[in-house]
Computed example of a mutant assay.
Amino acid sequence: MTDAPIPVFDGHNDLILRLLRHDVTAAQVAEGIDSGHIDKPRAARGGFGGGFFAIYVPSPADKALRMEEMVKPAYDIPLPDPLEEAPSVAWTDNGFYALDALAQAGAVTLCRTAAEVEAALPGPTMAAVAHIEGAEAIGPDLEALHRYHARGLRSLGPVWSRPTIFGDGVPFRYPSDPDIGPGLTQAGKALVRECNALKIMIDLSHLNARGLEDVAHLSDAPLVATHSNAWAVTPHARNLTDRQLEIIRDSDGMVGINFASAFLRPDGRMDDDFTLDFVLRHFDHLVNKLGEDRVGLGSDFDGALVPKPIGDCAGLPSLMAALAAHGADEALLQKVAHGNWLRVLRKTWGE
């Protein structure tokens, strides 16, 4: 490995949610802060070159209560109620303004093409691709999809872990498989077709098993789960079964490994006190099922409790070192860090 950290393109982070909740300002992200997982100085130290910056509308449900439940040996947390469109539109619009503020503060470079991502990855700013997680702000006429695409949207998750007019998500349930609920609605199928037409990547993370298969039948793009893990290692509803991995492999898509502790630990607990061996177990299984060209990283920074040996984006070299010690050569490290993402983005976005 070289002295400089390998630039990482990351499949998912929730920094925008911190800005929208006023936990941090764009200027603080640019200058450096002592909380959360991502800021510009720590990104430079850890090689966090950027990734998909998620715009997510939170549910009123108490996240702290969910975290308390997820330390138990088994849990089944009910899905939050659907959200109304109008407040979701207002929140999502503000998410795009927050991304603009990060760019104006010099923290990120907004990217709409894989070429722009590749150019920005070495720094000094983070490459930021706009992603919407949960399509509550999009109505059945899909007019908002076009509006957000014009503002830079290049990746969309039809659902978070709650139903939308497009389909159903999986609950926070352990142990459980993701075969929960019906597939895409007719509106959801229309959404997939329009995303294909606009070359917006469709994110399968959080979507239930039948919804994933519906996307697979409809989509002409690589299938991607930006922040999901292997169900065979951790039988959590949020993780992907071998059948789902095979569907993703056959589409020449990819999976970003999620750092959320509950989705990494075989016992499904949201407890961050463990070594990186669990990450390596998911890595091995995903590489075995998908191949070396279809595995990347999808940290869930600023949205999850991540393993202590990683800690935040400055800790990414620890993961790279663990992968190298595990047998990954330089070529594979480059693929996992960013090469596989760039390949899929070029193919999805028509470059």
Rank of each mutant, 00 (worst) to 15 (best):
D271H: 13
E84S: 13
A128N: 04
A74D: 01
P78C: 11
D252F: 05
R151Q: 02
H217N: 14
A74N: 04
L121W: 04
G327E: 02
T348G: 01
I248S: 03
V215L: 05
A237D: 02
A135H: 04
V170H: 06
P266M: 13
I248Y: 09
F166R: 05
F96T: 03
L212E: 05
V129D: 00
R162Q: 05
T164E: 03
F48C: 05
R112F: 00
A30M: 08
A260Q: 07
E136V: 09
K72C: 01
A107G: 02
G32T: 03
I6D: 01
S59A: 13
S161G: 09
T226L: 05
V108Y: 07
G169N: 11
T92V: 03
A30Q: 13
T109F: 00
P73T: 11
H37Q: 09
E85L: 14
A262M: 15
T185C: 01
R265V: 03
R151G: 00
L297H: 04
G181F: 09
P163W: 09
F278A: 13
S318K: 13
R343V: 12
P7A: 13
L156G: 00
E194S: 08
D179P: 00
L17S: 11
G47F: 08
A314I: 08
I132Y: 00
I55D: 01
L223N: 11
G11P: 06
P163E: 08
A43S: 15
P163R: 14
R162T: 09
S205G: 04
R269T: 14
A130E: 01
K72I: 03
L342V: 07
R173I: 02
S161W: 10
L184M: 10
E246S: 14
D39F: 13
G95P: 02
M254Y: 07
D14W: 11
D141M: 03
A119P: 00
D273C: 07
R238E: 07
F53N: 06
G296N: 07
D14G: 03
E351H: 11
V24Y: 03
L297D: 04
E69Q: 15
R18P: 00
E69L: 14
F172N: 12
G253C: 11
R238V: 13
D177C: 07
S176A: 15
S261F: 09
G50N: 10
I138A: 01
L218T: 12
W341C: 04
D252P: 00
D277V: 12
G211R: 12
F166H: 06
F301I: 08
V24K: 05
V117F: 00
L264M: 03
R265M: 02
W91D: 03
F53G: 04
G36K: 08
D179R: 15
P78R: 14
L240A: 08
H236I: 08
T241I: 10
G181S: 07
A337R: 10
L207T: 14
L191I: 11
D203E: 07
L102K: 04
G256T: 15
L207S: 12
R265Q: 06
G50C: 08
P307N: 13
V279L: 10
T275G: 15
R66K: 09
A262C: 15
H22L: 09
R265K: 10
G46C: 10
M67D: 05
P122K: 04
T113W: 02
L319I: 09
T109I: 06
T25S: 14
V29F: 06
T234H: 07
D252G: 08
Y75W: 12
D23Q: 15
I138N: 00
P171E: 01
H206S: 03
G134K: 05
D3G: 09
